[in-house]
Simulated assay, not measured.
Amino acid sequence: MTVLDATDAGADGCEHHGARLLASLDRSRVYALPEAPAGAAIRVFKAADTIRPFCWYEDAPRTESSQLSHAENRARHQR
C-alpha cells in the first residue's frame, strides 16, 4: 500500500499499517502497490474508517471529534 498525505508525501507499507496511517492523516488517500492483492486499497480504506487517529497512544483521552474514528464521529452526529 502507498498512503499519500495532503501534500502528496507518501509511505509504503502493509495493509495493517497503511490503515493505521490513513486513519491518522487528514485528507490522505491510499493506493495499492502493483503486487498488492485485489481489493487491498478498499480494505485499507474501510479499516481506516474504524481506527482512531494515532491509535498507538493507548492512554490518550478521546473526547474531541479529531480524536475519534470517522465511524465514531458519524455515529455521534446521527443521534
Rank of each mutant, 00 (worst) to 15 (best):
G10S: 15
A71S: 10
V44T: 11
A36W: 00
D49E: 14
A36N: 03
R74S: 06
V3E: 06
E58H: 08
V3F: 04
C14P: 14
A9M: 06
G10F: 06
L22E: 08
T50F: 06
A60E: 14
R43N: 09
A36M: 06
P34I: 04
G18L: 01
V30I: 14
A40Q: 09
V30H: 04
L68F: 01
R74W: 01
T7H: 06
A40P: 12
P53W: 03
Y57D: 15
R27S: 12
A23Q: 05
D59C: 12
A47W: 06
S66M: 06
Y57H: 13
A6K: 07
R52T: 04
S69C: 05
E35A: 11
R79L: 10
G13H: 08
P53N: 10
Y57G: 11
I51G: 00
T2S: 05
E64F: 11
L25N: 11
I42L: 02
R62I: 04
L68I: 04
Q67H: 10
L25E: 09
Q78D: 12
A11T: 12
I51N: 03
R27P: 01
H17Q: 07
E72Q: 13
A60K: 13
D8M: 06
L25D: 06
H77M: 13
D8I: 01
V30R: 12
L25P: 15
H17L: 09
P61N: 01
P37L: 04
R43K: 10
T50Q: 11
E64H: 14
W56K: 10
G10M: 01
R76Y: 08
A6T: 03
F45M: 04
N73C: 14
R27D: 15
A32I: 07
E58R: 13
R74M: 10
A11Q: 11
R74N: 05
L21T: 11
P34Q: 06
S28R: 00
I42F: 00
L68W: 00
L33E: 13
D12V: 02
H16F: 11
Q67G: 05
D26A: 15
R29T: 12
S66N: 09
S69D: 01
